[in-house]
């Protein structure tokens, strides 16, 4: 007997596609926003990323609608869009930021143009330092740190999202973690003193 695969599932009228999309994406929307914020570090880029993500998810609905758990698919799409944004930002900003010595990092507070007034109020010096350190990671390194260490996804889950073998993932995660430690923890002096020094430096 010949087996026939029905394609009717994707022949769904626009209205139904919209309501199905809303019903399936809504439970994940806040988590995706959080992840996007941790990747970009600011609200404006997060909103752009999320809008692009939702558009892509809508367009590719037929690819994930049948999945029991579509979140890895969503996170993978988010990562791909983040890579695009990251490359665009690098092209715009040039390689200057990336070529700075790591020792310069404590003096690099976020510029006023990069954060909204609300964010500036909410951000502690510590948080700004962390954002700057994260900015020194490349897109994949940051994504691994965000997914595993900040969002708490297990290694097998991250491996699925990133489509990496577990062993490769572990070594890349280790490298990313060591890089971040070097940026954040190998300080010549405690952070409180460091920021006092920043003030006197700018004065």
């Amino acid at each position: 007997m010949v087996s026939v695969t029905s394609l009717s599932s994707w022949l769904t009228p626009a209205r139904q596609r919209k309501s199905r999309f809303l019903a399936l994406v809504e439970p994940h929307s806040k988590t995706l926003y959080q992840t996007a914020y941790r990747l970009t570090g600011n609200q404006s880029d997060t909103e752009d990323l999320i809008q692009e993500l939702f558009l892509r998810l809508y367009q590719k609905q037929d690819h994930w609608v049948h999945l029991d758990n579509p979140r890895p698919w969503f996170l993978r799409s988010l990562y791909n869009l983040y890579i695009d944004l990251y490359r665009k930002r690098r092209r715009t900003a040039g390689a200057n930021d990336k070529s700075k010595q790591l020792d310069d990092l404590p003096y690099q507070l976020a510029s006023a143009a990069e954060v909204t007034p609300l964010e500036a109020t909410l951000d502690s010096d510590q948080q700004r330092l962390l954002k700057k350190a994260l900015d020194h990671l490349d897109a994949e390194e940051r994504n691994l740190i965000v997914l595993h260490l900040m969002e708490g996804y297990s290694l097998p889950e991250v491996a699925e999202i990133q489509q990496l073998p577990l062993g490769t993932l572990k070594s890349r995660l280790h490298r990313s973690k060591e890089k971040l430690k070097k940026l954040l923890l190998k300080e010549p002096f405690p952070s409180a003193e460091r920021f006092l020094k920043v003030v006197s430096y700018e004065d």
Binding site: E26, Y37, I50
Partner: peptide
């Protein structure tokens, strides 16, 4: 490192932003 990462605060999205973005995705498509 864990303390640093835990200190990363994510603000709440603007009210209605997520719903609006999801609806716009269908319209833009």
């Amino acid at each position: 490192l864990r303390l640093h990462l835990e200190s990363f605060a994510v603000p709440e999205p603007d009210p209605g932003f997520l719903q609006q973005a999801m609806k716009q995705a269908g319209q833009r498509q």
